[in-house]
Design a protein around this nucleic acid. Structure first.
Lengths: 225, 225
DNA sequence: GCAAAAGTGTTGTGTCTACACCCATGT
DNA sequence: ACATGGGTGTAGACACAACACTTTTGC
């Protein structure tokens, strides 16, 4: 056993795809746990910074210019140790806006957060931690910008929030909350109605694409019983 | 340079002492930065877990049975690297209830968070991060249990909150918020008034000493202008 | 009685949810 | 006209801050 632990950097990359909150998983091509699903990532290189390291490893899987947000989640040493490998792992949360479809290599695929395959190590609990962090931040920050495309209608945004939060969200109230907090600005454009008609929806965009705490007050709770 | 980075584990230990929020600093007895003030901690041992490691290092400074709370804060690789030492550091936030006065070694001392000496590395920003985390959690969790002694009056608790938050807190409203959230329970006992008189204060205690999120809603904001 | 400290009553404000209602478009 | 989806008006619940007022003690 070496004097210092190998340091692994991982990312839970989340995106709303096909109506589900999905995460990018890599099918391990090497021991240990060959064939099991794991979070993308790899070893910290000599002299490298944690954030640059995870960006480097992710670059092998997706176009990281499409990453709309990246933040550190947690650092763990526990479970790897049980496997006889003394090792430290730092997990990041990454987000990709809905609507993009980055090219990914064949050993990598998207999986619904609610229907994960058998995961290597304790990566499943890291995905849960990432999901909880996203849910919490949707309530008191402007992090919605990182899930949404550049412009969108309130209905589309409502769907993104509902999928990420895991419960129904009212378009009416979502609009009120985000406008009151001055996070959303109208583009002035409208979306053409579909073949079935309906009033054309106004297009909005997030005023800022930098994370900020917008309200200590929680909103968007699950509908009352 | 070795194949793997040395992993350092640090703790920002906070306690309300003498009317100030203070942190435990260690005066470095070795290079680099000999003589500068630094957070207590040390290297991760072979096969050791992060949390056990910080507990082990802290045990050399204080009686860790007096630690009322310990949580992971952040892991950094950046700044140490600038000094030519490729190194990763994980910082923890630790809390000690007010009123205790743990024995500490002579190379260690308490310093007000608002009046820090010249700090080694980027430890000052870690203390700021710890302080901000504590302030935020005072609003939406029951973390007050970790700052307060076993039993206390509302006035005493008000002072602790005011010191940790850095702004005035109303005893009236603090009591209402914490009772509404059912965090406080009366012990049934009373504190004798001082020589100057006054109605005897009821003693309370926190119902739970495990961290839980009690409200997504922020309270205890600074008094309005 | 009077000062001091603790605790309660009450009012107003702001944020949120829920739901009724109105608006703009396609067929 | 009517269905469809977008958007506004309004009322009620709740948490909170602020402050007046009452209670209980020592002197």
């Amino acid at each position: 056993m070496p004097d210092n632990p190998p340091h692994v950097v991982l990312a839970v990359v989340l995106q709303v795809r096909d109506g589900l909150l999905q995460t990018l998983l890599w099918r391990r091509g090497r021991d240990p746990q060959l064939g099991a699903h794991a979070l993308p990532g790899g070893y910290l290189d000599r002299g490298e910074t944690l954030e640059l390291s995870i960006r480097r490893h992710l670059a092998a899987k997706v176009d990281i210019r499409e990453l709309s947000h990246l933040e550190q989640l947690i650092t763990r040493s526990e479970s790897e140790q049980k496997l006889g490998e003394w090792q430290v792992a730092t997990a990041y949360l990454g987000l990709i806006p809905s609507g993009l479809d980055p090219a990914i290599p064949s050993d990598t695929s998207w999986h619904s957060v609610d229907d994960l395959p058998k995961m290597a190590f304790d990566h499943e609990s890291m995905i849960q931690a990432a999901h909880q962090r996203l849910q919490a931040k949707l309530s008191y920050t402007n992090i919605g910008f990182a899930l949404a495309p550049e412009t969108f209608t309130i209905s589309e945004l409502r769907d993104l929030y509902a999928i990420a939060l895991g419960h129904e969200v009212s378009a009416t109230n979502l609009q009120r909350v985000l406008l009151r907090r001055e996070l959303l600005e109208p583009t002035g454009e409208r979306r053409e109605p579909g073949p079935t008609g309906g009033r054309p929806a106004a297009l909005f965009r997030f005023g800022s694409h930098r994370l900020s705490i917008t309200d200590q007050f929680a909103a968007l709770r699950p509908p009352g019983k």
